[in-house]
């Protein structure tokens, strides 16, 4: 079964077509890169897939659930993380785990077990009562990711998870992403770092609300005659009509 199936979803705000009939499928355990320039419609598309916004038309299933009628089930089946916001800096490591575990609907016993597991895996023993704001960036990043998948979601949405992050931490983070995909968690990720687009199984590039290219990085580079994904991206994004000056 596909983790995500999208058939011609569109979102209009008044006269403005933010997302213009996009279609694609994401397989279970796939790492899917969702690329596009600022204002291309990525965030709107992602909000619809997360069950936060109802499309104007089109059909889509996320984790097998309908994005019109089963939005609450979708929210329970997915995890979400972004670089801008994911953990509360003024809560401790343990408090963040409890808070998010509660939101994701885990029982107290499950949360306790998960806390053990996360602390063990990230080698954070002794740091449980430290404020998240005081953690080194690399740890914060890994902790945020571990928490976003603590309820074993079918799909995790990562919205620019590595923006502004140290080059080594950024690379280690992608190794975590890869591990999650090995455990059959589907990864739907946006990024402005085009080297990271190369690590995706497949990537799509949005321009003016439409998906203009979709394929494995190797296929896209071949199709556009470019040596890297940065070249592919710039070729496509430069043709955008929706010029934001």
């Amino acid at each position: 079964m596909n983790a995500i199936e999208v058939k011609g979803i569109t979102k209009k705000f008044g006269d403005f077509v933010a997302v213009d009939s996009i279609s694609f499928e994401v397989g279970t355990g796939e790492i899917f890169g969702f690329l596009g320039a600022n204002g291309a419609g990525k965030s709107t598309a992602m909000r619809m897939l997360c069950g936060l916004l109802e499309p104007t038309s089109g059909e889509a299933k996320v984790a097998g659930f309908d994005i019109y009628k089963q939005r609450e089930q979708i929210k329970k089946s997915i995890g979400y993380m972004s670089q801008k916001f994911s953990l509360y800096g003024d809560l401790t490591v343990a408090e963040n785990i409890k808070f998010w575990g509660g939101l994701y609907g885990l029982t107290k016993a499950e949360i306790r077990a998960k806390e053990e597991e996360i602390v063990e895996k990230l080698e954070m023993r002794g740091w449980e009562n430290s404020f998240v704001a005081s953690l080194p960036m690399g740890w914060k990043q890994k902790l945020a990711f571990s928490i976003s998948i603590m309820h074993s979601p079918k799909i995790v949405f990562l919205d620019e998870p590595t923006g502004g992050v140290d080059p080594i931490v950024r690379r280690k983070f992608w190794e975590e992403i890869y591990d999650a995909s090995l455990r059959s968690i589907t990864v739907f990720v946006t990024t402005h770092y085009m080297d990271e687009a190369e690590y995706c199984d497949r990537a799509s590039i949005m321009v003016d609300g439409q998906i203009r290219a979709l394929g494995t990085p190797a296929e896209l580079k071949k199709k556009f005659g470019r040596a890297d994904m940065d070249g592919v991206f710039k070729d496509l994004a430069r043709g955008a009509q929706r010029k934001d000056a």
Binding site: G164, H192, A237
Partner: peptide
Amino acid sequence: DEPTTGVDPVSRQ
């Protein structure tokens, strides 16, 4: 101060 954070590759260029 970080004029291009969160900005796409084309706009950055």
